[in-house]
């Protein structure tokens, strides 16, 4: 370890697993989702239908990914409030301390790292807000996705019992009304939100790389080994 640097833990193994599950799922969800929206490769006429099942596999993949997203989302909501490591909800409360930290980090970004006046040992307020936006976008994908899913259970029955469509109706029917009143609006919103998610990802990756290069604290290692390095003098900031 370099002289004058201190190693700080930033992500628990559980958080890192969730991160990579989400990352892989996201690529899958986008690839299969775009196929569902507009089947962009063709099947061969000559193949028997039983051998192809292409749309069905894409939808199957999309829904399996959806289940993984469902489960990790529940975990993340739990961790936001009850994590024994860092409770992210504390960083999104708009109090004076968080505001200052948020501003300092944004200033750091727009002044191209000329100003660097915050403590980077923990996940800062800007970072947490940015991730909260992601989780909200993902939650919206879940709600609109599950609403679309329940249309296929039109009879109100499913292989796991009628409680399932019942719950889906109860928890997602409101998306119909807030998106504009018709089923198509929900679908459109699902597709639009995908693009917001993609933009979110692009900036996310850029920012992590940028931080790694300019802060010189090996931020990129957080998501792999779970820790990064901070200069001793900075770590003592409030």
């Amino acid at each position: 370890m370099n002289e004058g640097y201190k190693q700080v833990k930033r992500m628990t193994p559980a958080m890192r697993i969730i991160h990579w599950v989400n990352a892989i799922c996201m690529i899958g969800a986008i690839a299969t989702g775009l196929y569902i929206g507009h089947p962009y490769y063709q099947t061969f006429m000559a193949d028997g239908a039983v051998d192809k099942y292409v749309m069905a596999w894409n939808r199957y993949g999309h829904f399996i990914i959806a289940i993984l997203f469902d489960v990790t989302s529940v975990l993340i909501v739990y961790l936001y409030f009850f994590s024994r490591f860092e409770k992210p909800y504390k960083k999104v409360i708009p109090n004076a301390k968080n505001w200052t930290e948020f501003k300092d980090v944004v200033v750091n970004l727009v002044t191209l790292n000329r100003k660097n006046e915050f403590n980077s040992t923990h996940s800062d307020s800007f970072n947490t807000v940015y991730f909260t936006i992601f989780h909200l976008l993902l939650l919206w994908m879940l709600l609109t996705g599950l609403q679309m899913y329940v249309w296929g259970l039109g009879s109100g029955l499913s292989s796991i019992g009628s409680w399932w469509p019942w719950i889906l109706h109860l928890s997602t029917d409101w998306t119909l009304y807030v998106t504009g009143g018709s089923k198509m609006d929900v679908r459109l919103s699902h597709h639009y939100t995908m693009w917001f998610v993609i933009c979110w990802i692009v900036f996310h990756i850029y920012y992590q790389v940028w931080r790694t290069i300019f802060w010189k604290e090996a931020d990129i290692a957080i998501v792999i080994g779970g820790s990064k390095f901070v200069k001793e003098e900075k770590a003592n900031r409030k």
Binding site: L109, I198, W210
Partner: peptide
Amino acid sequence: FGLGMLTAVGIGIGIHAAASAIAG
């Protein structure tokens, strides 16, 4: 619409990256 938005994000990032490199 989505690609337009993505392009805007890309341009923003490009400018920021170039400026950061020069400033660095």
